[in-house]
């Protein structure tokens, strides 16, 4: 596999370093040729930067792609927003050579050039397509058979499709495939593809953000999901942090939120403490306990089988 650069973005290292930790741990476990690269800035975030100044949004994203271009590296990111923003600008510039020239006139003055050669992939489709389900399955120590989870894609993992092109934007499958490869059953709630709504917290509309989170969490509770699995720091903030805030105010959901890298890490045999699961606001305990109880049950069943076999066949 070709070496690739990790694009961490701002939110994970700043607010959720434990998500960086689990990402590094699973990549090490798989022996992936990942590199930390100097010189990346904010991708930049669309709702804040693009609304203020489209030109600056374009230029900053183009510069980040140029950094990867120069090193001849492709980019992989555990953040959906970063991939969507970088891909959108890369697509816009590649479709518009005049605009690319304008951008490069400025980039040249800081010694950069946008070529748009670097491939930009979110961690989930990267694990699905490049690492592959077989290689991942080979590293699993214990699967999630008997556990029921809901996969939340995060809109920007696959949209806008014309720029990202890694999965069906209206009926994505790859994240589900990965989670099912870990042995878990994936449920299909009606709100499966509904946007988390975290963007509302960034425009001073916290109550509306909670309203949207609540709709999904209530459905997950109704259908008996053991956890919500996602791979976007913004969605994580919405469902972990905001769920916790609502629970403090007396609402009850009890839906543990797991980052894909954490779920994979657990399956690889990494310990919850090592993965930093204690840093979550919503207790992951019930998920782990149910999973542990399933092992006990399996062991008891195996013991009974052994006894019966002895009786039957000596």
């Amino acid at each position: 596999m070709k070496e690739f650069a990790l694009f961490w973005g701002c939110t994970i290292p700043a607010r959720f370093p434990f998500l960086e930790k689990s990402t590094r741990l699973v990549m090490d476990n798989l022996g992936l040729p990942m590199r930390d690269v100097e010189g990346f800035t904010c991708c930049p975030e669309k709702s804040l930067v693009n609304n203020v100044d489209h030109g600056m949004w374009t230029l900053t994203a183009a510069r980040n792609v140029a950094v990867a271009d120069e090193m001849g590296l492709d980019l992989v990111s555990p953040c959906t927003g970063c991939i969507s923003n970088l891909s959108t600008v890369k697509g816009e510039l590649r479709a518009n050579p005049n605009r690319t020239d304008e951008v490069n006139t400025l980039l040249k003055q800081v010694g950069r050039e946008f070529k748009g050669r670097a491939k930009l992939t979110h961690l989930v489709p990267f694990f699905h397509d490049e690492v592959g389900l077989d290689r991942i399955k080979n590293r699993i120590k214990r699967n999630f058979s008997g556990m029921k989870v809901v996969v939340h894609y995060g809109c920007h993992m696959m949209r806008p499709y014309h720029a990202i092109k890694t999965d069906d934007p209206l009926n994505p499958k790859k994240f589900d495939n990965l989670v099912r490869a870990l042995g878990a059953e994936t449920l299909e709630p009606s709100t499966k593809l509904m946007c988390c709504g975290q963007a509302l917290d960034r425009v001073d509309q916290h109550d509306v953000a909670l309203h949207l989170a609540r709709i999904k969490l209530l459905e997950l509770k109704t259908i008996g999901a053991d956890a919500l699995v996602l791979c976007c720091p913004s969605c994580f903030l919405q469902f972990d942090n905001n769920q916790n805030l609502m629970e403090k105010d007396g609402e009850k959901f009890g839906i543990p939120v797991l980052y894909f890298t954490e779920l994979l890490g657990l399956a690889m045999g990494l310990k919850p403490d090592e993965l930093g699961l204690k840093s979550h606001r919503v207790d992951v305990g019930p998920f782990i306990e149910k999973w542990e109880a399933l092992v006990q049950k399996t062991r008891i069943e195996e013991d009974i089988d052994e006894e019966l076999n002895k009786e039957a066949f000596g």
Binding site: A14, P17, E20, K21
Partner: peptide, 29 residues
């Protein structure tokens, strides 16, 4: 050029020094 600086908690988790983010170059641009 960023929306938040890497958390000091990274060190306690045993994470490597964060790669530089080219702030000066960004400001110039």
């Amino acid at each position: 050029g960023r929306l938040g600086e890497p958390s000091p908690m990274r060190k306690r988790l045993g994470l490597p020094e964060p790669p530089g983010s080219a702030k000066e170059e960004f400001l110039k641009l």
